[in-house]
């Protein structure tokens, strides 16, 4: 089971920009080998929370603890140095760089050639390709390929493999499946699971409840900057979670309302996405 001390913990974290309060008393914990799913509608404060964890913003009050000890991040680098890796929706941010090159941006493997320092392309490619293949992405076998030529799921996979390779302990995934098709999303979810098995703590931000339920051990729903619900796997059904995310407004009511609307119309009813 999960150890008693969480890798990362937020205690009563609040954030306001001037007079606007964005986050209220956020308390969350994530343990090694556990996936915490952060659910919330647009504008619920998810992005601000991620930025606090990534060291972009400092909380107005409250504390961040790692391994039970309070920490402060003055800049993104500080969070990264402590093993917090934040990955954004589109994975690789350097579409025109090769897999090997982008994998090692900022930490290039070097070798000496006489008095000259040389970027060790071969080694970079080998390590990058191996790291990705270890996650089961066997389609990638050439480190010289451009990142931009890969599918969205593959890019996410490389980004995750990169974070794991460089010793991340906490992986923050910001809507990794939002822009992906069903198959690609399943791909990424499998990798999230694999990451968890390797003992990393994962914070998975999404508004797709199905994706969250597929990998999550622990769920938190954010509504208007506050944690509206905090529960473990199996405690709530998909419908209950969806209702929570919609701000307490029952999805079932909404569906009924829309169906009533459809019956009054001559045209085809608006299709309802059952996500």
């Amino acid at each position: 089971m999960a150890p008693i001390i969480p890798v990362l913990e937020l205690r009563d974290v609040e954030k306001s920009f001037g007079p606007i309060d964005v986050l209220h008393e956020i308390s969350l914990k994530v343990h090694e080998g556990e996936v915490l799913c952060l659910l919330g509608d647009n504008g619920a404060g998810k992005s601000t929370l991620i930025k606090i964890l990534a060291g972009v913003h400092k909380p107005t009050s409250g504390t961040i603890l790692m391994d039970g000890k309070p920490v402060e991040f003055d800049r993104p680098r500080d969070a990264a140095d402590r093993g917090i890796a934040t990955l954004h929706q589109f994975g690789g941010t350097f579409p025109l760089m090769s897999i090997g090159r982008s994998f090692f941006v900022g930490v290039e493997p070097q070798k000496k050639w006489g008095p000259f320092t040389v970027f060790d392309r071969k080694k970079a490619n080998e390590i990058a390709v191996k790291a990705v293949r270890d996650f089961g992405i066997t389609r990638i076998d050439d480190g010289d390929r451009l990142v931009g030529g890969l599918s969205g799921g593959e890019r996410q996979s490389i980004a995750i493999a990169r974070a794991v390779y460089f010793g991340a302990r906490v992986l923050i995934l910001d809507e990794p499946t939002a822009a992906l098709g069903v198959k690609q999303a399943a791909h990424v979810l499998r990798i999230v699971n694999e990451t968890k098995q390797r003992g990393l703590a994962v914070i998975f931000i999404t508004h797709q409840v199905m994706h969250a339920l597929a990998v999550g051990d622990h769920f938190a729903v954010l509504i208007r900057g506050a944690v509206a619900a905090d529960f473990r796997k199996g405690d709530k059904t998909r419908e209950e979670i969806t209702d929570l995310m919609a701000g307490g407004e029952s999805m079932a009511d909404l569906e009924a309302e829309l169906e009533g609307y459809a019956q009054n119309q001559e045209e085809r009813p608006p299709s309802l996405g059952h996500t």
Binding site: F94, L96, M97, R101, S102, F104, V105, G106, E108, Q110, F116, T117, V118, F119
Partner: peptide, 10 residues
């Protein structure tokens, strides 16, 4: 050749 090239592209 040098690692700086990677920085420039990035």
């Amino acid at each position: 050749v040098s690692p700086y090239g990677n920085w420039i592209y990035a």
